[in-house]
């Protein structure tokens, strides 16, 4: 590929990603952005860009990630966790990557309400906590009220934002080592392979376990897909529609008493702002 062509490809890929939603999973052979963007694709994406400009969400710009490459990696990873398929939209279409970006630039990302005083021990004990506790999504009085996300003890001096930056770059490192290419350039099953290595606790990072990063990534992908759209994810309540979740309402007395499942069009917090 000539340099000029490469530039063109990159440019259109960026627009394509920026446009989010439209494609995501299920593209040719399951590859998302795999350097396989055909000319047809490029044409399409140009057209789509201009078509979508009018409705483009002006909030969709990065507030935490500065390197575009990190954000691209994030997008690709979240899309593997919740892929677009016959069942409904995937993470990108739902706005999950922007949700995560915004969360990380706020108090959650900086661990504002967490105890972050020294000393932080990186010893056998903390290593085991991070690697062993795979069933923590099944334990505890909150199993019935909280999203099933594993919660290993948090014993790192890194805040959540730091963990993401290091984790996403580590993903590229692992991708290079395993498949000799960047994460975003891999086939879907290769991407899954890389993520699975993190999920299995096989990847060590500096100051934190790879599995801790993966758990955080998985948790926030679900949060982005299904939280109120006010946070930038669950775009147009598509996550809720997919799940038939009706959103926050003043009363569910009638539905509670009904034996049949009652499906309702969702409402959001926006409906409470009067």
């Amino acid at each position: 590929m000539a340099d000029e062509d490469k530039e063109k490809t990159d440019e259109s890929r960026r627009r394509f990603i920026k446009n989010t939603g439209m494609i995501a999973g299920g593209v040719v052979g399951g590859s998302l952005f795999g350097g396989l963007l055909t000319s047809q694709f490029q044409d399409d994406s140009d057209t789509q860009t201009s078509n979508n400009e009018a409705t483009q969400n002006l909030q969709e710009a990065r507030t935490f990630f500065s390197r575009k490459e990190d954000f691209d990696t994030l997008q690709a990873a979240t899309e593997r966790i919740l892929p677009k398929d016959d069942d409904g939209p995937g993470a990108i279409e739902l706005g999950v990557p922007f949700f995560i970006d915004k969360q990380l630039s706020g108090s959650w990302g900086t661990n504002a309400k967490a105890y972050m005083k020294d000393p932080f021990y990186q010893n056998k004990q903390t290593y085991e906590y991070q690697h062993k506790d795979t069933k923590q999504d099944k334990s505890g009085p909150n199993t019935s009220t909280q999203a099933p996300s594993r919660t290993p003890r948090y014993q790192t001096r890194l805040n959540r934002g730091d963990i993401y930056l290091q984790g996403l770059r580590k993903m590229n490192e692992v991708s290079q080592k395993k498949f000799d290419n960047k994460f975003t350039e891999l086939e879907a099953d290769q991407q899954d392979d890389v993520l699975q290595a993190f999920d299995n606790g096989e990847i060590d990072m500096r100051g934190v376990a790879g599995i801790t990063f993966f758990n955080l990534l998985r948790q926030m992908t679900l949060e982005g897909a299904f939280s109120d759209p006010v946070y930038g994810g669950n775009r147009n309540m598509m996550g809720w529609k997919m799940k038939e979740y009706p959103g926050p309402r003043m009363s569910y007395v009638n539905e509670l008493e009904s034996d049949a499942f009652v499906k309702k069009e969702p409402k959001s917090l926006r409906d409470f702002q009067s």
């Binding site: 967490a114 005083k117 004990q125």
Partner: peptide
């Protein structure tokens, strides 16, 4: 070790 986050 400290219980550091509100998830815990």
């Amino acid at each position: 070790l400290p219980v550091r986050t509100r998830d815990e």
